[in-house]
């Protein structure tokens, strides 16, 4: 499905050419500038490994794509470089509860 085994380890991973998000593959620090897939992203906040940033602007209602497949829809407009998570990405299937309020 994905093959990220080649290429340098930059801190962000673009899993599939169609994807409009990139994934942190190490902890990232607020303010870091990272070049990925013809874009330059300023990391908006400290981020743990595995979290997602928007590669480009995503309009409310648009599919968020990872592995080249939709993982939900943008629940509001998302700007390039924004953290993409429970606050702006909604499942088309099951409501995800932020149980401890720690994932905003």
């Amino acid at each position: 499905m994905t093959d990220q085994s080649d290429g340098p380890v930059s801190g962000l991973l673009h899993l599939h050419p169609r994807d409009n998000i990139v994934v942190a593959i190490r902890p990232l620090t607020k303010g870091e500038m990272i070049e990925i897939a013809d874009a330059r992203i300023r990391v908006p906040r400290n981020l743990a490994l595995g979290h997602k940033l928007a590669l480009r602007d995503i309009s409310a209602g648009d599919d968020v794509l990872k592995y080249g497949a939709p993982i939900g829809r943008a629940s509001c407009d998302i700007g390039a470089g924004d953290h993409v998570h429970l606050h702006n990405l909604a499942s088309r299937y099951t409501v995800i509860q932020d149980i401890e309020g720690t994932n905003a």
Binding site: K66, A69, I71, G72, L86, L89, S91, Y93, D98, T102
Partner: peptide
């Protein structure tokens, strides 16, 4: 909740 702390946002994302 651990899934979300680890950066997963939706069941579709976890599923894929």
């Amino acid at each position: 909740n651990g899934n979300a702390l680890g950066g997963l946002s939706t069941i579709e994302e976890k599923s894929l």
